[in-house]
Design a protein around this nucleic acid. Structure first.
Length: 198
DNA sequence: ATCCCGAGGG
DNA sequence: CCCTCTGGAT
């Protein structure tokens, strides 16, 4: 199931991936993909976005959540990549997390998608799905969740597993009204009986 | 712990 | 109406 998993975020370079993932916080990838074509047409790389007017960045991404913070962080990130990383997106987690608006989850996505470094980025879907499945204890932090999953899953499958959890969470093991509740094939998922998942 | 924050779904 | 969406900074 879920063959050839990859990010759904539109991008044509590591820089565009950083910006797209930065924008995806608390926002659907469909919503991000709706604004990135025009955004990247105007500002295709770090040098261009570093010179952007923040008000214009806001205007171009206005339809996504948290857009003011994101527009500000996008410009700062572009400037930092231009001035401190020689115009190239850094390929270590430590450097990536120096970029404003880039935390561990975003850095992990960029590392695995752009640079082939195996990671498991823990987002809202990964956390919900793995906790419901019982792979991760309910009270585990995001960081603990990542470590438990890395210990449990072979390294060469980390990247795919990340996407598979997300697809499964999006389409089936949804936050509200999970499909398992009405699926006769499923009789093991605790969502069926535990009211807190209803 | 709180804030940011629009679109889409139920 | 309310909840959720590939979070991060303070």
């Amino acid at each position: 199931m879920y063959p050839n998993p990859k990010t759904m975020l539109y991008h044509e370079s590591p820089f565009q991936l950083v910006i797209a993932v930065l924008m995806s916080a608390q926002t659907t990838d469909v919503g991000v993909n709706k604004v990135t074509p025009a955004l990247f047409a105007a500002y295709p790389d770090a040098n261009a976005m570093a010179e952007a007017d923040v008000a214009d960045l806001e205007d171009k991404i206005k339809t996504i959540g948290l857009y003011r913070n994101k527009a500000k962080n996008m410009k700062k990130t572009a400037i930092m990549i231009r001035d401190e990383f020689g115009g190239q997106v850094p390929n270590t987690r430590e450097e990536l997390e120096k970029l404003p608006g880039v935390g561990r989850k975003t850095a992990n996505v960029v590392l695995s998608e752009a640079f082939g470094v195996p990671t498991i980025a823990v987002d809202t879907h990964v956390e919900r799905v793995t906790k419901r499945m019982g792979i991760v204890p309910p009270n585990a932090s995001v960081r603990e969740t990542e470590e438990i999953l890395m210990a449990r899953i072979p390294e060469n499958r980390w990247r795919d597993a990340h996407h598979q959890f997300i697809y499964f969470g999006r389409e089936y093991c949804t936050a509200r009204n999970p499909k398992c509740r009405k699926d006769p094939r499923i009789d093991f998922c605790e969502c069926r009986v535990l009211p807190q998942y209803g």
